[in-house]
Design a protein around this nucleic acid. Structure first.
Lengths: 259, 259
DNA sequence: CGATTCATTGAGAGGCTTCAATCAGCGTGG
DNA sequence: CCACGCTGATTGAAGCCTCTCAATGAATCG
């Protein structure tokens, strides 16, 4: 499943999560680069979780298959992300390259050993797991109660925040994944995703310049986009109050949890 | 938000997850019992996450509010569960008592300190977080692609596994939560949940004896129930196979292409 | 230039939601 | 004691959103 490997020559990687991740990333510094072409798998759901990976370039999708043959994409991984953390002995999901991907790997044994004995690294791992959990919760909220339009707006916003602008226009960015990936991530069909794109364009909220470059999105009305997405987003300000249960009010963030 | 507290007098607690949790639960052993009547909140989304709680009796729901006033229940907590683990500085969700609940609390600072310095406890915490993550993913799969009937069957099965039989009939158990809680957990409306219950009863899959005891469910056709639920469940037996991609069972889509 | 892939668009159907009414159980108070 | 109101659950009718099936368009590749 790996393509080529060549040593070192590492360059700068994004650190989208937390700037204090450097310590963790240092664990991968001396590892060989591995390349994966689009569509190939890095590992499979159910495989023994023998490695932890750091994404250097490209985008990965995290997915699970369901009995009827459909797939559910539970997340995307971008440069700077680390995958394989919150796991038992086996991977809970498969990881596939959306586009060409460069990763580095560290044996989980080694990773766990180093982290267990390093008081500086442990909180970092913990923070990453917390982020992962928060993302999972946000996704549950999205899937639980939002319309196709709200889901797509929410997705566009968070992807934009993740990848940043591309080109000279600060409101233009590139969607790395195809419509099918978006559909499986948002719990919709390809057709509904496509129709919703069309609707957003018709309303002047986003723009797609070239037919052939369907992945380049320009946000023309950020306010509207955020407004539509907001229905499901978590706001940092918690509107808590009341221990009476009837009255819920205005939004906020997520929850999750489990046994 | 707390009702009464009185010391000790502890009795047996379930240890649903792993029998080796005793170590972790030991942390709570000397803490006072606290009682919460149904509907009251243990803590709120956005609150500073100052405590870790152990559930001794009763059931808690974990939820988040969304902008339009709806709520999303992301999980339920049962006796033996520990809540407040995979968090940053603030709770990601609120926790409310479904029925009367008894808990014990430990300051997060203390909890973190003890765990950080105990090589036996740390893996236990890690395992709990992994379980939590696995549950979150299972929920995402359920919400992504399953029908109302499949969601409810899946829910009934997992709740039955959690609470066990009640009374003399080994196929009868008690649903601690109301229809509204179930609806918000499954991403459905109360009406749809109710209609789906009716449908399952009509098909002879479950039975509800008394109108007034709507919470006592008897599974009359476990095979059918599991079959309907199965569409979305993850199978414990990892269906992994091959790192050759082409054929994964069942599924359509996505071929992973090249190597 | 065909074949393939990915995306868009249309028409029809179905499932879930919404709105609304009814019912059963339970607590309160006249 | 029973009427009244409240809560939780069930049921019905209508509508909408999304899915399914199907056809078309655009771009890439051999």
């Amino acid at each position: 499943m790996l393509i080529t490997t060549h040593t070192g020559n590492a360059n700068i990687v994004n650190l989208p999560r937390a700037p204090d991740n450097i310590g963790l990333h240092g664990l991968f510094r001396k590892q060989a680069h591995e390349h994966l072409t689009g569509g190939r798998s890095l590992f499979f759901e159910g495989d023994e979780a023998a490695y932890v990976f750091e994404v250097l370039e490209g985008v990965l999708r995290i997915l699970r298959m369901v009995a009827d043959g459909r797939r559910v994409i539970t997340g995307f991984l971008y440069p700077g992300d680390i995958v394989g953390l919150s796991l038992g002995g086996r991977y809970l999901y498969s990881a596939e390259a959306v586009s060409t991907v460069t990763v580095r790997r560290v044996a989980r044994r080694q990773f766990d050993f180093v982290v267990a004995n390093n008081d500086r690294l442990r909180p970092q791992v913990f923070a990453l797991v917390s982020d992962e959990m928060a993302a999972a919760q946000a996704q549950m909220v999205l899937l639980s109660c939002k319309s196709a339009e709200e889901r797509l707006c929410s997705f566009l916003l968070s992807t934009f925040r993740q990848v940043g602008p591309c080109g000279q226009d600060p409101a233009t960015f590139e969607l790395p994944m195809g419509r099918g990936d978006i559909a499986d991530y948002l719990g919709l069909t390809i057709e509904t995703v496509s129709r919703t794109f069309t609707k957003l364009i018709a309303r002047g909220i986003i723009r797609i310049d070239s037919i052939s470059a369907r992945h380049k999105i320009t946000i023309t009305r950020p306010g509207k986009l955020a407004q539509f997405a907001g229905g499901c987003e978590d706001h940092e300000d918690a509107p808590r109050l009341s221990s009476v249960r009837g009255g819920r009010q205005g939004c906020s963030t997520h929850a999750d949890r489990q046994w």
